[in-house]
Design a protein around this nucleic acid. Structure first.
Lengths: 345, 345
DNA sequence: ATTACTAAAGTAAACCTTAAAGTAATGTCC
DNA sequence: GGACATTACTTTAAGGTTTACTTTAGTAAT
């Protein structure tokens, strides 16, 4: 059934030259005369030769491949970052091996091991919300595999990281909310075990403290980054008849959960309850009402991460000092948190 | 800087056994005694051995890897399918190499070549909207690489394909629209060069014909699957003061473009203009109004595709007869196209 | 005519793993 | 006690490519 793949050797035999000559010719090596090179390329084309990348990589001891590990993929933030990473990789002649951890630390660890076994030239990773065991990252470092964290970073020093200014972003959102009159502000905070959750929480607190607005602990709920968590947290407060006027959510899906819950119980956003979230997705402007948010520029994150990684790969034998980039956010105001809610009774 | 990676040989030397003994021991081969196996595993662990997958694959002449090529990734439909494919692959001990063609045929071709060079065991692909040159697929077939098309399929016979029943899905939507009273129905049809566009168009026409509703050619516009195309098509009709009462869009992003344009010019959906689309995304229920649609079950598509592919891989040397699966759709009615628009003046 | 160099190739070895075949020591059976 | 199995290894070779080194023939310089 399966045609045996054409190898350098097949071409060599056909032309009565050595394998190495063919290998060199196809790579335009000056050792080989122009005539021979042409002839070899002609035959290679004719036979439909494609190099065996596994053999090439084994010989070259690297793979021209970058591993990317993300917790989720059917999610605008990661989808968009990944797409940008692919573009840059493609332009630089790298292949991407994408792994999806599904927010599971164990799976993440396995993926990283696989990537190292595949001899990827470098790794870009955004860790799961439950990643606690940091040994694997130490192993990566020991092996000298260039590594860049994006967005979600574990508590280790001296690593490359491209981060969002989560604290300032959250601060800006809450500051704005207070300025337009809100006082009863809640925060659905995701996991504060992880940097993004923790820093957004800190930004929230800092703004509240700065403007001397009391934080009601009932309104600050931790749990996760997904829709269901937004839904459940809302319902918990609703059943307790203890809703704030504005909820600041740690992510866009959490806000979506709130939207869904609110519509289910007949509360109107932004009039009965207002929402603003961290994280921007294309569709937010199509929601009812359009959801205001703190925007994280995914293209810049991807570009910075790839730039650092490619540089590290190039200089891998010299060693390098870790780079930490912190990307600023913009507050995007749409149909929520703009002063038409309960702050204006 | 970089620790040289530990190989089988390093372990072998340390224990004064042969490389092959180590290789066998680590794979629990019965040739090796329990004691030796234990000892070898202990040392392997101690040294932090990870197998070199490239060497293993070169030796095994396959890669335990599946290539996936999609036109887009930051898009709910593909994101969701990919996520499902990853899950199934992970459960079956396969790695996924994901390539994103960005709707560019040339890039797609290059990706497929790369995947073959990487000796992937099989390929799942959804082609770009501009793919015309089918030679590359013939090459894949010749090389005996198992291949499954999903959703978007080129015009070739005897290939594996998992398709949506696009025609019937579109028919159902239009039939429903006519039954609730719509007569002035337009269709933003994407590209009809490709099966999904063509079949949805056919379903549209068939329903219109069956119920003897006239098709106004001005309202049937081709162009693409993205938001901008929905936006522009709408604006074209709006400026010509020639809008239908209902627009059936070929994709969910196109509908989003219509939403955006409509809100920009101050038209209310569904009252001034109604919309229904092909394709479901999680967020549609959060739109204003919630967008009704023809649902494509991404989990089933992924499962069917992977099932066919894995079977093909297993039986690759025996040859196999191509399988074509056609997945049925459901009409999901939310806040649009439910009989509260212009059909009811 | 000898040395020195260059162009265009070839040979050997390495990358790391695995399958297949071989070996030596021990055990089993009638 | 000779034929045959079994156990626990080892050796050899193969997978396809590349890098480093060597060879050969021809040209140029002295």
């Amino acid at each position: 059934m399966r045609d045996k793949a054409i190898t350098l050797n097949d071409i060599a035999k056909k032309l009565n030259v050595s394998t190495v000559t063919v290998s060199k010719a196809l790579r335009n090596h000056p050792d080989i005369s122009i005539g021979t090179t042409k002839e070899i390329k002609r035959i290679a084309e004719e036979l439909g030769y494609t190099p065996n990348i596994m053999a090439r990589n084994l010989s070259a001891r690297h793979s021209n491949t970058i591993g990317v590990v993300v917790p989720k993929i059917a999610h605008f933030f990661f989808g968009s970052i990944i797409e940008n990473i692919y573009d840059i990789a493609f332009a630089n002649n790298y292949e991407i091996i994408l792994m999806v951890s599904e927010e599971k630390a164990e799976r993440e660890k396995k993926h990283i091991q696989t990537l190292m076994a595949m001899k990827v030239d470098g790794i870009i990773i955004s860790i799961t919300q439950e990643t606690k065991d940091l040994e694997i990252f130490e192993t990566v470092r020991k092996r000298g595999v260039p590594l860049v964290f994006i967005d979600r970073v574990p508590e280790i020093q001296n690593v490359n990281a491209v981060l969002i200014n989560d604290k300032l972003g959250a601060f800006k959102a809450i500051e704005h909310a207070i300025k337009i009159g809100y006082r009863k502000i809640g925060h659905f905070a995701g996991y504060t075990d992880i940097n993004i959750g923790r820093n957004r929480m800190n930004g929230f607190k800092e703004a509240m403290n700065k403007y001397k607005v009391e934080i009601n602990p009932d309104w600050v709920i931790e749990g996760g980054f997904g829709e269901n968590y937004g839904y459940e947290s809302f319902m918990k407060l609703y059943k307790a008849k203890n809703l704030p006027d504005l909820i600041f959510t740690v992510s866009y899906p959490v806000a979506l959960g709130v939207y869904m819950a609110a519509s289910e119980v007949g509360l109107k956003i932004p009039n009965d309850l207002d929402v603003i979230c961290f994280g921007n997705a294309k569709v937010q402007k199509f929601l009812s009402p359009p959801l205001s948010c703190v925007d994280q520029p995914t293209d810049i994150i991807a570009l910075e991460a790839m730039t650092i990684l490619l540089e590290n790969i190039e200089k891998r034998d010299e060693g390098f000092t870790p780079i930490k980039k912190i990307i600023d956010t913009d507050l995007i105001l749409r149909g929520t948190c703009i002063g038409n809610g309960k702050n204006h009774d």
